[in-house]
Amino acid sequence: MDFLSYLINGLGLGSVYAIIALGYTMVYGIAKMLNFAHGDVIMVGAYVAFFSISNLGLPLIPAVLLSIVVCTVLGVVIERLAYKPLRAASALSVLITAIGVSYFLQNAAQLLWSSSTKVFPSVISNGGISWNGLTVSWLTLITIGVCVLVMICLTLFINHTKTGRAMRACSEDKGASTLMGINVNLMISITFAIGSGLAAIASVLLCAAYPSVFPTLGAMPGIKAFTAAVFGGIGSIPGAFLGGLLLGVIEIFAKAYISTQLSDAIVFAVLILVLLIKPTGLLGKRIREKV
């Protein structure tokens, strides 16, 4: 029973990683850049949700929606101001800029909201469902459910809508996409909007599980989810999903059976191993250089 309970908890944690990893992978797929500020968008989402619930007294769902709106706008603004002017610049310049944006957001948060940790209110009731001695918390169930829902909606959108098709076209060849009449800049904005909106959802799930809000809150989940995206094959949406879930499960198993302190080291060791065997990640296709 322990095994099963660890597995489910791992899937719960992995679901959060997967939702965050989708943001990394989609942005990489279309803009061919690693958006290192993605984790900090989660942090902003967490603060917005925190203030909406604690200060404005909003119920959970409106608070989440407000957080999604703020993060979506933030993601699009970041892209417009920081990354768009660098469309023709080297990958290294873009990477350094992204790291700069990350520090900017963390310091802005510190300035605005101080570095002291705020306690996220308890938003999801504590119980769960029990079955044969196995208890699964509501939060874990909701988290996994949200992740599956996100995955289904995103897959339908990317594969079966005109805009989704155009986004996939842009990820392959921006010049040819322009010849089709696709507004490449708009597609990039939409990608950042979706990724950042998902970051907001992830932030609330994360804070419901670990209820502390602080300016560097996004860093660790950000780097884990980035790892998950690489693990699954960066640029691949099913890859982000699979990579996130696996990473969560490996992390929980490592904590449970090996060592709490070493769990992160084990997670990264597995990543290195996978990349040695399959450099493009589990579901990754050939990696294309930034054009």
Binding site: R168, A169, G175, A176, K285
Partner: peptide, 21 residues
């Protein structure tokens, strides 16, 4: 365009639909 530049990871049908975008 020179070199065709079809969208390799999309089907023939999807490529044609993109032409009418």
């Amino acid at each position: 365009p020179e070199g065709r530049r079809v969208f390799a990871q999309q089907t023939v049908e999807e490529n044609l639909a993109l032409g009418a975008y």
